[in-house]
Amino acid sequence: MLVAVTLANLVVYSSVDEANARKILNAFVEETGVGVDFVFLSSGPALARIEAEVNNPQADVWFGAPLENHIIAKERGLTQPYKTLSVYGVSPEFYDVEGYYHPIYMNPLGIGINTAVLEQIKASMPVTWEDILSTSLSRMIQYPNPQSSGTAYSLITGLIQIYGEDGAIDYLKKLAPNIQTYTQSGTGPSKAVGPGQVAMGIQFTPAFFQFMEQGYPVKVVFPKEGVPYEVASVSILKGARNLTDAQKLIDWVVSKAGQQQIVNQQTYFYPIRSDVDFGSLQPLSTIKLLPVDPVWAAENKTRLIERWINEVLPY
C-alpha cells in the first residue's frame, strides 16, 4: 500500500524548520532527482522519536538539530557512519572524523532587538554583552531556559569562553533583573521580540532575520566579545532503508554546490564552507565566533544546567 509507493523516497526527520527545510531539500531534489518525504520535528522530539523507533526506523536521515544532539545519537548507537568525500575544505570542528554526523549549516547566536520598543523605552543599541546589563533594560530581555533548550546552553558555554565558568554564572546572575521571562523553547524569544512584547531576545539568529524579512522592526547584534554558534548537522540513521539516497544527501549538502544553495535559498543560515558566495549576509569575518568543545559541553551539561537552575533562576 502506502509503504510500497513511498519506499523509493528518502524519509527525512527534519529539525530544520519546515520552510527552510523545504527550501534546502527542494534544491537537493532538483539537483539530484531523489524523491524526499520529510516531517518537521524539533530536535528534542526528533531524538526521542528516533530512540523509540530504533528497532524499526521510520526515517533514513535526521536532518538538522545541533551537532551536540548528533553526538548523543551517535553515542546511543542510533546512527551509522558514512565518510563523504565532500568534507574537503570544511573546518574540522564542524564534522565527525568517524563520519557519523555531517554539517549542514551554522548559526551564530545573537541579540535580536526590536528597535521600536528600544525607542519606546529610550535605551541604546548594545554592542557588547556588558551593554545589556544596563538598568534601562529592566525586564526587557528574554532568553530560553537551558534546561529545555540547546540554544540557551550554547549561550552558557559561550559565555564561559569569555568569562570563565564562575564569571559566566555571575554574568547571568547580573543579567537576571533584566529578564522578562526565560522561554521554554529556543525560538521563544523571537516570538516576543517580533511583535514588540519585549525589547531583546537572545537566541540563534535566523528567526530574527525572518522577522526582518517580514517587515518587523528587528535588528540583530553580535556582541563584540564573541558569540557561540550551533552547527546544524545531519546523520544517517542506523537501519536506514534507503541508504544510497541518504548518502547522496550527505554528499550534496556538504559540497560546495549544496552550501551555495544554503545562501541562495535565503535561509539566513551561514554556510560551513568559506569558499561560497555569502550574498547579503553580514560577512562572517566581522563576527567573532567562540568555538566550544562539544565533548566538554556534553559532559558538563547536567552540572552546568543544575548550577544555572540553582544560582541564576532564583534571581
Partner: peptide, 26 residues
C-alpha cells in the same frame, strides 16, 4: 500527536508549532 506525526502524515497543529517556532507568527 506531536510524537506520532510522520513524514507521510502530518497535522495542522504541528504546522502551527513549527511556523511560530521559526518566526512566522502571521
Amino acid at each position: 500527536a506531536i510524537f506520532l506525526v510522520s513524514a507521510r502524515w502530518n497535522l495542522i497543529t504541528v504546522q502551527i508549532l513549527s511556523q511560530s517556532d521559526s518566526g512566522r507568527l502571521s
